[in-house]
Design a protein around this nucleic acid. Structure first.
Length: 347
DNA sequence: AAGACGGGGAA
DNA sequence: TTCCCAGTCTT
């Protein structure tokens, strides 16, 4: 048995029962693949059910609003995935009459679909012979073939894609791709791979040379930026002053509160003395403050201070509006903001 | 070629 | 803490 056949044999006895494996509907597979980008299966699962139920077909999805999609996506992160899905759903509705494409060359042109996702959808839905290369595949190939070329260098990416194409079983690409990824996720794990029960260890270069812990090689770590957010919470009876975010920073197009970002951590009184505070009215007294919440993201650490102001005699700004607290569930907000407001109003 | 983009689970 | 997850897009 060759490498692929061994992994497929392993897969058929050890695979998890996942909902998106029960269908060849390209739309449903697309839904699952986008949700699972850079996301663990357990984390994405509830979102998959939520979207599949709310939008049973791509036609239903195409009729949604961006606000609604982002609200459903709230808490999953990488929100551009949700925004791109809506664009793609609309295009599929118009250009393909609501029939989700299954050909790699069509899929690769769609927003939010890159090489991995196009290979996944085309192989799973139509058995097109395209090899998927995701984090699991990089790891399995790097270890089995003992390759120390960095997986995130342009050279490495080409090398691993070529290798993945070579080991692909073109007679059953869907099964092969599923097997490679499941094997990487369940057995050939990043930490403490289960080499003791591995069916291909006798052919595995990393196992033979005791190098599993040093493969795959990945270039440089990103450096984390620190940012200081001072949010102003201003409410009037059952209404909160809110704003829609721009489209160039984190949490694009989502909703949050009036914000003053500073270069360093300031005390509440120092924030109130800032020139930017003028639009909130002269000598607007501080009613309360929450202390500092540290919100950890992959690329930045946010130090968030919520300042509750007593009143708002200032000027309304563009993109500001009052939201009824009963409508807050409809607005897509960063999780940390949502939880804070929820807490204040006790709902 | 390098950066940006979330949030959570595991060690 | 650090790593990394069924990656893609922008600059």
């Amino acid at each position: 048995m060759n490498f692929s056949a061994q992994l497929i044999a392993w897969y058929q006895h050890n695979k998890r029962d996942l909902p998106w494996r029960k269908t060849t509907d390209a739309y449903i597979i697309w839904l699952s693949e986008i949700i699972l980008q850079q996301t663990r299966v357990e984390q994405g699962m509830p979102y998959f059910y939520r979207f599949a139920e709310r939008y049973p077909t791509v036609t239903d999805f195409a009729a949604a609003s961006e606000d609604e999609v982002l609200r459903l996506w709230q808490g999953l992160g990488y929100y551009s995935r949700g925004r791109n899905m809506l664009k793609t759903a609309k295009l599929v509705q118009e250009q393909y009459g609501g029939n989700f494409p299954t050909a790699y060359n069509d899929l690769i042109k769609l927003k939010g679909i890159g090489e991995y996702t196009a290979a996944a959808i085309s192989s799973f839905s139509a058995n097109e012979a395209k090899a998927v290369v995701d984090g699991n595949v990089y790891r399995v190939l790097a270890r089995y073939f003992g390759i120390d070329e960095p997986i995130n260098s342009p050279k490495g990416k080409k090398l691993f894609q070529k290798l993945a194409d070579e080991v692909l079983d073109v007679s059953q690409p869907a099964l092969h791709n599923q097997a490679m990824m499941e094997f990487g996720a369940m057995l050939c794990k990043p930490k403490k791979p289960a080499c003791g029960i591995c069916p291909v260890r006798t052919g595995c270069e990393a196992f033979k040379t005791n190098a599993t812990s040093s493969l795959p090689v990945k270039l440089k770590k990103i450096k984390v930026k620190q940012r200081f957010f001072n949010y102003l919470l201003i409410f009037d009876e059952k209404r909160v002053l809110m704003k829609k975010r721009g489209n160039s920073d984190i949490w694009a197009n989502m909703y949050d509160l009036p914000l003053i970002e500073t270069d360093e951590l300031l005390e509440p009184m120092q924030v109130l003395a800032l020139p930017e505070m003028k639009i909130f009215g002269e000598s607007n007294p501080l009613k309360d403050n929450s202390g500092v919440i540290k919100h950890v993201l992959t690329h930045q650490h946010l130090f968030i201070r919520f300042l509750i102001l007593d009143k708002f005699p200032g000027e309304m700004q563009k993109d500001w509006f009052y939201a009824d607290i009963n409508d807050l569930d409809k607005l897509a907000m960063p999780k940390t903001i949502f939880i804070f407001i929820k807490d204040i109003f006790n709902f």
